[in-house]
């Protein structure tokens, strides 16, 4: 059991923190699920934090000069290095406190990146920072493609999805590879806390973000972030689709505390993935065969997760 969790009772819907680390006036698309995920995570972590942002949608939409949407200290350096910059911030704060140059008061250092920044170009920096044991939270906001540059595939794009660089065609059904399992990579670093979350389950998300901040050492949070623009769905569907992703086991919610897997929302009677896929333009081209293959993969991945959690279906 993690000591820092002992006094944390969890948020309740009636008593959510009012402070908003992110202000309105940000330029995310209408109905953006990614900025919602970010807002909720930051709400849980609170104002006593420093945020390091990777290049990507969330950086662009919150920081068009001279406007910042950040109410907490924030720095953006580049695309692939949020974890490395956060390492520097965290290590500097520690030493400055030790040397009495700044007040001795814990500050949560939070690095955020999209799936591209995390699973692809920034994976090395993230691995380094986790391995070195910096006391920070890394949040991957997974909208399953490079949205900021116009919806190109990433290694986190799901099988079958259409992006501008995994287009369906006579010889292609869209993304031909399986989604990279970054939470598992984080777990392999033996860090104390890894979790997946979804804005549809906002209390679960906020509790996990808070736990990630509370735990000493690196914490990795992988948050499902729907993107109406890149996924081609209605602007009002962020929550509905996020819920479906969980109910179909496409995006299971779990925690890995000191290496132990806990499934937070066990879905015993999952809905068919087709229900999830049909809501989104990025899957519209799929044939029944590919949909069946996706169903098979989802079932297989969920079985693996059950085994890891020591549970049966």
């Amino acid at each position: 059991m993690i000591k820092e969790f002992e006094n944390f009772k969890g948020f309740s819907a009636k008593k959510l923190p009012l402070a908003e680390p992110i202000a309105s006036g940000h330029r995310a698309c209408q109905g953006c699920g990614e900025v919602l995920a970010l807002r909720l995570a930051m709400k849980a972590i609170g104002m006593n934090s420093i945020v390091v942002s990777a290049t990507g949608c969330m950086e662009i939409i919150t920081s068009t000069f001279p406007h910042t949407a950040w109410n907490v200290p924030w720095i953006h350096v580049a695309f692939e290095n949020a974890a490395a910059v956060a390492s520097g911030v965290e290590a500097a704060l520690k030493v400055l406190m030790r040397k009495g140059k700044i007040p001795q008061k814990h500050i949560d250092v939070v690095a955020i990146g999209g799936d591209g920044a995390t699973a692809d170009i920034g994976l090395q920096a993230l691995s380094g920072a986790m391995e070195r044991g910096h006391d920070f939270v890394y949040i991957c906001l997974d909208n399953e493609a490079y949205m900021n540059t116009g919806v190109q595939r990433s290694s986190s794009t799901p099988y079958g999805a259409m992006t501008t660089t995994s287009p369906p065609g006579k010889k292609s059904f869209g993304q031909a590879t399986k989604k990279k399992n970054v939470p598992a990579i984080a777990v392999a670093h033996n860090i104390p806390y890894v979790a997946t979350a979804s804005p549809a389950y906002f209390l679960d998300l906020m509790n996990k973000a808070k736990k990630a901040a509370l735990v000493k050492g690196p914490a990795y949070l992988h948050i499902y972030s729907s993107c109406p623009t890149g996924w081609r769905h209605g602007g009002d569907l962020a929550i509905e689709i996020s819920k479906l992703a969980v109910e179909t086991n496409v995006f299971p919610l779990y925690e890995v505390i000191e290496g132990n897997y806990i499934i937070n929302r066990k879905i015993t009677k999952p809905k068919p993935v087709a229900e999830y896929l049909k809501k989104q333009g990025r899957f519209r081209h799929l044939t029944d065969d590919i949909i069946a293959e996706i169903q098979r993969q989802v079932d297989e991945e969920y079985d693996k997760l059950l085994k890891l959690a020591g549970e049966t279906a």
């Binding site: 819907a13 908003e20 309105s24 995310a28 209408q30 953006c32 919602l36 602007g235 009002d236 962020a238």
Partner: peptide, 29 residues
């Protein structure tokens, strides 16, 4: 209030919520 990506549903008097039309993008969530 919780689900608005644009912080445009804000707590109002008597526990109700009201729209801040300065920022509401009209997504319909």
């Amino acid at each position: 209030w919780v689900y608005c990506p644009d912080l445009s549903m804000v707590p109002a008097e008597e526990g109700y919520y009201k729209v801040n039309l300065d920022y509401c993008k009209g997504c319909g969530i």
